[in-house]
């Protein structure tokens, strides 16, 4: 039986899609079978971040409406063979995400994979609710910034009240992932510290992902950062977070760029 994980945040643009791709690829590279499900109907982007945009034929809504079956809609990753993607519909309306339809798709995926990772859209509306509804675990992506922390708090409340797990009186496992963390600004005291965020939200910390140009580079070429630049600071942070998801005890650190002599001599071009 799969673990169903939702990557959510409330606030837009904090790094949910980046995280879904990077964590999913890291889990798959560790030998787990993983499917990434894009719930951002109308504004799908996970296909682009995964580099699968040219190969999309069917999507989640097609499967829900019976136009295609799961096997036809799933896109297998060409780099890591235990990784698959179920894209969101770009043209359809999000009302087509029916609770019964989503329930069936998640149940079917759970039989085939170790991990079902749902990339939530921003907001607290239907799309976000559908993405979290069947989850056993949640990764709450938060930037060290006031409005992001506030929205995360709101989402944590929803996870604890509206989901199937909550309704069954069971406990939803929740983890905080702080992304776009800038150690220099933190040192200057111009950014909320991780301790502050943790204290306010009081859920366990899954990891701290530094702000990095490697994330942009990876999305340019259409690969999760854990595949495109596996030795980069954000990729190492995501890989460690994936190990924590698998239950390993790994101390949380903030990986930094490794600057070699070469980089000093020839200042790196930024993509």
């Amino acid at each position: 039986m799969a673990k169903v994980l939702v990557v959510t945040s409330g606030k837009g643009g904090v790094g949910k899609t980046t995280t879904t791709a990077a964590l999913g690829a890291a889990l798959a590279k560790a030998g787990q079978s993983v499917v990434l499900v894009d719930f951002d109907v109308g504004l799908r982007n996970l296909d682009l971040v995964m580099g699968a945009e040219r190969r999309v034929v069917f999507d989640l809504i097609n499967v829900i409406q019976g136009d295609a079956n799961l096997a036809q809609a799933l896109i297998k990753d060409k780099r890591v063979d235990t990784l698959s993607l179920l894209p969101a519909s770009q043209t359809r309306d999000k009302d087509a995400l029916t609770p019964e339809g989503v329930a069936k798709v998640i149940a079917d995926l759970s039989k085939k994979f170790d991990w079902v990772i749902c990339d939530s859209p921003a907001g607290i509306e239907r799309g976000a609710q559908m993405a979290m509804h069947h989850a056993d675990m949640a990764v709450i992506v938060t930037n060290p910034e006031v409005s992001s922390v506030r929205d995360s708090d709101r989402i944590i409340g929803m996870l604890d009240s509206t989901t199937e797990k909550a309704k069954a009186g069971e406990k939803m496992e929740k983890f905080l992932l702080i992304t776009r963390y800038d150690p220099q600004r933190a040192a200057r005291g111009d950014m909320l510290g991780t301790d502050d965020v943790l204290e306010i939200l009081s859920i366990p910390l899954l990891g701290i992902i530094p702000e990095s140009a490697d994330v942009l580079k990876a999305s340019n070429v259409g690969a999760p950062v854990t595949i495109a630049e596996p030795d980069s600071a954000p990729a190492r942070a995501y890989t460690e977070a994936a190990r924590r998801l698998m239950g390993e005890k790994v101390e949380v650190t903030i990986p930094t760029e490794r600057k070699g002599l070469f980089d000093w001599l020839f200042k790196r071009r930024v993509a």
Partner: peptide, 26 residues
């Protein structure tokens, strides 16, 4: 020798292909 293959041109090419298809669709 030291020019790293930059990623922006790849992004531009991917977007051009994708958007050409999506504009028709949407």
């Amino acid at each position: 020798i030291f020019k790293r293959r930059s990623s922006a041109p790849v992004a531009r090419d991917r977007l051009q292909i994708l958007l050409a298809h999506e504009r028709i669709a949407v």
